[in-house]
């Protein structure tokens, strides 16, 4: 960009001031003229340097710039925002998507459990998450990471996420980690603008249009559950999942946080999360923690269940268990 030549320009002016006598009378006037010239150059360079940024902001609509927090929008305003976002997706990707804003179901609090005796680390859950949630294709982004752990040890230091050999390895067990939807979520506490919060049904959500992108939540999360959009995710137009939720898998802008929402757009519709449906080993159990007859409650009551990093006091709604 322009700044490096700017150095040259100004310094020539400065040296010119020393050597060339300009057609002005008196020391002060010449200095003033030089100063004005330098200031003009500086302002011009400033404008040139800031131009891409200013252009970007100028291209944003006032509604987008001034949109209020999700919780402060009434239903009409939410509908308007959703329409705007649907139109944006249509313009950018040529795809008709439906963005729904499903409210939490009454009397429901979601819980998730994974049977570590069964999970074999094949990673199909990651793939399903990747597709369902319109993740960035280049980075194979997903909200799940599967850890290959040493049998007989819970030390993640001995674990690995980058294994590529056929699974399961006889010496290992496999532990998928995603958002634990904590009851005492450190990520929610630290957010300076309340852009992330816990919904009534236990799901911790992010308002992508309110997040300022400080990434404090990412530092606070002990489960590596949060992801930052370092750039706008790239998804081929024909691969975009058109069933979208405002608080979950709609197309995210660059520079905001996102996270697993237990596929909020599915589960609030009564459906199972995508990762559960995709699991070829059936290791995943999902359900309503408040319903005493639910599968998840049976697991909690009858299996030896543990919570990841329970000592941190995050009180997850996500559980792990072994069969034997």
């Amino acid at each position: 960009m322009t700044p490096p030549p700017e150095v040259q320009d100004n310094s020539t002016v400065d040296s010119a001031g020393k050597t060339v006598s300009l057609p002005v009378i008196g020391q002060v006037s010449r200095r003033t003229a030089l100063k004005a010239f330098g200031a003009t150059l500086g302002i011009a360079a400033f404008g040139a340097a800031a131009k891409p940024m200013l252009e970007k902001y100028a291209s944003m609509s006032p509604e987008e710039m001034l949109q209020r927090h999700y919780k402060e929008l009434d239903s009409d305003e939410r509908a308007a925002v959703i329409n705007r976002l649907q139109d944006e997706t249509k313009v950018r990707h040529g795809v008709d998507v439906t963005i729904r804003d499903l409210p939490p179901l009454e009397g429901v609090k979601y819980g998730y459990a994974i049977n570590l005796s069964v999970c074999n680390g094949n990673g199909e859950c990651m793939r399903a998450c990747h597709k369902e949630n319109n993740h960035d294709r280049e980075s194979n982004q997903s909200y799940i990471r599967v850890l290959e752990m040493q049998r007989g040890s819970m030390d993640m230091e001995k674990g690995s996420t980058t294994y590529t050999h056929p699974v399961p390895d006889d010496d290992k067990f496999y532990m998928p980690v995603q958002c634990q939807q904590c009851d005492n979520p450190p990520c929610v506490d630290v957010c300076p603008v309340e852009a992330t919060w816990k919904e009534k049904d236990g799901i911790v959500v992010v308002d992508y249009n309110w997040c300022i992108g400080c990434r404090y939540c990412e530092a606070a999360c002990p489960y590596h559950a949060r992801r930052f959009n370092w750039k706008a995710p790239t998804v081929p137009d024909d691969e975009i999942n058109p069933d979208q939720g405002y608080l979950s898998n709609r197309m995210r802008p660059a520079g905001v946080m996102e996270k697993c929402t237990f596929c909020l757009h599915r589960v609030r519709d009564g459906r199972l999360p995508a990762c559960l449906e995709a699991c070829p080993t059936g290791a995943r159990v999902f359900g309503n923690l408040l319903d005493p007859d639910s599968e998840i409650r049976w697991v909690l009551a009858n299996k030896r269940v543990f919570m990841l990093k329970e000592e941190l006091g995050t009180q997850p709604s996500f559980f792990y268990y072994f069969d034997e």
């Binding site: 680390g121 094949n122 793939r127 982004q141 980058t162 294994y163 590529t164 699974v167 399961p168």
Partner: peptide, 19 residues
Amino acid sequence: KMLPQFKPLDRFMDTPHPS
């Protein structure tokens, strides 16, 4: 046994290699 088909390709993550 299955071959894990889908691996994260995070920025700056090393190319995955076994163990």
